[in-house]
Design a protein around this nucleic acid. Structure first.
Length: 296
DNA sequence: GCCCAGGGGTAGT
DNA sequence: ACTACCCATGGG
């Protein structure tokens, strides 16, 4: 058990980061702290202004010292000002002045929202579950999937939690067992994908080109442009990836008057927002979704 | 009962 | 390459 404080020397907002739709396994407690399972460890994070209070069940993370591992996971090394400027300038380059003003505003509104460095295998399965599904239901189903493996149960500081199943574990599940946790038509996809995915290949995609990443991901059953983009953006450090879901579809019609196939809208977003289109996507997703829902 | 949800596969153009 | 339709389930 390790407990310490990270002094934040860059803009960071824990609530925005954990509650912008990029992750399904972080949960907020009543006292304002966030609970998550990362690299097999339970992390408890609580932000108090520029202090990030950390409790961890493990001594290190991703083979790094805990402090360094958490900075990496939270994307604290990303230069948010440079990223915002890049996006805003790119929009102006294409003559989208009003859109650049809005994007600038949203970046200020949710200042400190960062893209996490999550696990590619976990993202692949979780976003397969996300297809034509709603966020509360996605979270419940992921939790049920973890609980199919009692051996994955861990305990720390009086809190019980489950680590995400390995490929080997999911391979052992029959189609019926997958269907038993309400995966519906997604059960077939997961059944096929766990039998065809090459994890070594998947992990090696980090550092490859956008097209190389996309090409491989699209070979997996149930993975189309949207899910591939989520895996790339949230776990393969592909910040030009631009996931288009029903919300972003509306946003893109709103901002650029484009509609049509996911591919077409995605390509438009990547072009107009530029190298960090994925960052723009996350901020806009949170902004428009919060607006429509009327909560918070 | 109706509608929708961080979509994708397929068959038909 | 693009489009229309279907896919199961839970929650409002």
């Amino acid at each position: 058990m390790k407990s310490f404080i990270i002094n934040l020397d860059v803009p960071f907002n824990l609530d925005h980061t954990m509650d912008c739709g990029q992750t399904f396994r972080w949960n907020k407690l009543k006292d304002g702290s966030w609970l998550g399972v990362v690299d097999g460890a339970l992390l408890i994070l609580k932000q108090e202004n520029s202090e990030l209070h950390v409790k961890s069940s493990a001594e290190n993370l991703f083979g790094m010292e805990l402090d360094e591992g958490i900075r990496y996971y939270l994307g604290l090394n990303d230069d948010l000002d440079t990223i915002k400027d890049n996006i805003v300038e790119n929009l102006k380059l294409y003559g989208f002045y009003e859109q650049s003003v809005l994007t600038d505003k949203v970046f200020d509104l949710y200042r400190g929202l960062r893209i996490l460095r999550q696990d590619p295998w976990e993202m692949l399965i979780e976003y397969l579950i996300s297809a034509r599904n709603n966020i509360p239901s996605i979270k419940r189903t992921i939790e049920k999937l973890c609980r199919l493996f009692p051996e994955n149960k861990r305990q720390f500081d009086g809190i019980e939690y489950y680590v995400f199943p390995t490929l080997k574990q999911l391979k052992k599940l029959s189609l019926r067992e997958l269907e038993s946790i309400n995966l519906a038509f997604r059960a077939n996809w997961i059944y096929d994908t766990v039998r065809s995915v090459d994890l070594e290949k998947l992990y090696s995609l980090k550092g490859r080109s956008f097209n190389d990443k996309l090409e491989y991901l699209l070979t997996l059953k149930g993975v189309g442009y949207k899910i591939a983009s989520c895996v790339m953006l949230f776990s393969l450090e592909e910040f030009s990836a631009f996931p288009v879901d029903v919300w972003i579809e509306r946003v893109m019609f709103n901002l650029f008057n484009v509609k049509g196939s996911t591919k077409r809208v995605m390509e438009t977003g990547r072009k107009y927002f530029g190298a960090f289109a994925g960052y723009a996507q996350e901020y806009l997703f949170k902004y428009f979704r919060t607006l429509q829902k009327g909560d918070k």
